[in-house]
Design a protein around this nucleic acid. Structure first.
Lengths: 161, 161
DNA sequence: TATTGTTATACTCTATAACTATA
DNA sequence: TATAGTTATAGAGTATAACAATA
């Protein structure tokens, strides 16, 4: 009755990633609400901590979000002094976005508060496995795609299967 | 300049998971569209392949989606004969949901078509690392939470940090 | 003219409430 | 009365188009 494919090259992580991310996000929402944050805010703060001082468009490219929605997202964070927008002296059209000290502090508090939610969602994994997962996710998200500036390439017609 | 926490117990995978899942989903959408599927459909089909013959409510619990949205989701899949709804003889209120042969076939085709998207998103990882990631995701999503029937517990006030 | 950021708006996804049928 | 599924509908999330400032 094993209908699942056994060849590792047939394994697709997409659906599992979607499923697990949803479960994590649902629990994160209730944990973050008292801190005045939403999961999306945490993703932005995390990216800005890893590499701040970038334009809104570069942030949009990294997060793969539409630039128009970055505006509202940063408005939220700026209203609570978690990030700062400064006009770039080199190109006055650009806003240079950076994490404030308060932002770094709030992010740490949020990560601390999320420990329980993460323990619940990743309950089936041992501590060393969770660390492995974290490392894989970190490396995957800091790859060339996520750091590119305005990549947005269309998916090539890869029918190699 | 290393502002990131170094203690592994401080590592939180939530934001990275969210970020990576989004990138995967955006690429999956364009790949799945010609097959008449959306990322959400693929998650449901994947869960049903792993363990079909369950009620809509159990499916909702596993996917952690509201039961009302499961209706439309299954309507889509049923319209294309990818799943079947049968009244349970034991409790005629229930619909027993199962993957059809066409559904299993379409799922395989979709997974095949997604190879390119996955290669792009997981480009920073080696093949063995991708297999490790797949295994971790599979085990995490088949844990006691995802298989529970109508768990839906509120997040406990875990302030152990 | 092209680009950055902004606003207004339409579209999709998700959740809440009320209904039908079964138990 | 309580539960499984359905429908209708309002709220949140996201994308598209037009505009202002700057290059």
């Amino acid at each position: 009755m094993s209908a699942a494919p056994l060849d590792p090259s047939e394994h697709r992580s997409g659906a599992l990633l979607d499923h697990l991310a949803r479960r994590m996000r649902l629990r994160s929402e209730s944990v973050l609400a008292p801190l005045g944050l939403r999961p999306r805010h945490l993703v932005a703060l995390t990216v800005l901590r890893a590499g701040g001082g970038i334009s809104q468009q570069a942030l949009a490219s990294t997060l793969e979000m539409d630039g128009t929605n970055i505006v509202g997202l940063l408005n939220d964070l700026e209203a609570e002094r978690l990030i700062e927008r400064r006009r770039s002296p080199e190109d006055r059209r650009r806003h240079v976005v950076e994490l404030t000290d308060d932002g770094a502090k709030r992010l740490s508090e949020a990560e601390c508060a999320l420990a329980g939610a993460e323990n619940e969602v990743l309950g089936a994994l041992e501590p060393t496995e969770r660390e492995t997962l974290y490392e894989l996710l970190r490396r995957a998200t800091t790859g060339p795609i996520s750091c590119g500036e305005a990549v947005r390439e269309e998916t090539p017609p890869d029918t190699s299967c």
